[in-house]
Amino acid sequence: MGGEAYTFKLFGLTFNATNVISGTIIFVLVFFVLFGLSRHLQMKPKGGQNVIEWLIEFTNGIVREQMPASEVGNYSFLAFVLFAFIFFSNQLGLIFQIGWNGNEIVRSPTADPVVTLTFSLSMIMLAHFAGISKNGLKHYFGSYLKPYAVMLPINLVEEFANFLTLGLRLFGNIFAGELLLKLLGQMAFSHGVPTILVSLPLEIVWQGFSVFIGAIQAYVFVTLTTVYISQKVSAEE
């Protein structure tokens, strides 16, 4: 159970094999879970269909709260997929941590800042693109001068701050959770039985709390993405 370095390989570019492997596991897992839950759809749902209907209702509610009514249909699917993917990614590192030769192979993909900043950048770029394609370039550039023209630097800094905090919030929560799990594990095996007895309840409590934090952070990420998209997309009179 090493944890110090990440494996990487080079084909002219550096690839982070840990992220690739963990991300592929998440793709396969999310696909098979959602595929399995959505077979044999009936009018009166029972069993797995209830779960997936509840999840879709949940993410639809997030979008319905934040977006103007004409745009809800466009983004509810995005919110659902984003929530499912980020939720499963956050929980993977609490179930599996596979290491090999002192490097890590499987952990939460979202415990890497590159992955979370990629998510955040894609969502912010989606918001800008949706704003331009719906309201036109003139309205988009005009929106930077919106309350007063002198607010231009503040609006620009706000865009960067949104991008950075959206990504780094997810990274910080998940990385700190996993790091503390590893430190508790090291403490447990450092001095024999007494430290094991002390660390075991702490580790259990922290695992439970990290499950909760993973769910909350997925919800916050999806809500903030929806808020940013709706800010760019809602036309102002």
């Binding site: 905090t165 780094l168 919030r169 910080g172 929560n173 990385f175 700190a176 952070q217 919800y219």
Partner: peptide, 12 residues
């Protein structure tokens, strides 16, 4: 979730 972003980064 929003407020805890900065303190968690400080812990990291």
């Amino acid at each position: 979730g929003l407020i805890e972003a900065m303190p968690i980064l400080a812990i990291v």
